[in-house]
């Protein structure tokens, strides 16, 4: 990535990723994670939202040995090192899927649907997965 792209007039945009898909069944979750990691080089103000089945991406204790897939859940813990620190999870999605904060692999902020709506409204750009 070129420095010019990164510095593009020094304007910091609010960039929101919305993750709504479970891991493994489709490639959306992994693709999203890779885009977040690559995009982190651009020094934008990044927020990552997990809602609907996307909350399952953060489930602790994933073990892909028997199914012979790559377990990418530990990579969510690397996001902090990439300065991606705003992780939001919609409470309603967790409640309807039998998950609580203790089930998640990284510290997140748990938000109501209303608060998620506001976070989405606050973004300059939204990338949907």
């Amino acid at each position: 990535m070129s420095d010019e792209m990164m510095e593009d007039e020094g304007v910091v945009k609010k960039l929101g990723y919305v993750n709504r898909k479970a891991p493994y069944g489709t490639v959306y979750a992994l693709e999203s994670l890779e885009v977040v990691l690559i995009g982190a080089a651009f020094d934008q103000d990044v927020s990552v939202i997990f809602m609907d089945d996307g909350v399952y991406q953060l489930k602790k204790g994933q073990d892909t040995k028997a199914s012979e897939m790559k377990n990418f859940s530990p990579t969510y813990r690397a996001l902090e090192g990439y300065d991606v620190e705003k992780l939001y999870v919609e409470k309603e999605s967790m409640d309807t899927r039998g998950l609580s904060a203790d089930d998640l692999i990284v510290p997140v902020e748990i938000k109501s649907s209303e608060e998620i709506m506001q976070i989405m409204e606050d973004q300059d750009i939204i990338l949907s997965f």
């Binding site: 377990n71 530990p74 813990r77 090192g81």
Partner: peptide, 15 residues
């Protein structure tokens, strides 16, 4: 081993 990715150079330098 810990994160299942190779870090970007910026992240590596910091770490």
């Amino acid at each position: 081993e810990e994160y299942q990715i190779a870090p970007a150079v910026r992240v590596l330098t910091k770490a």
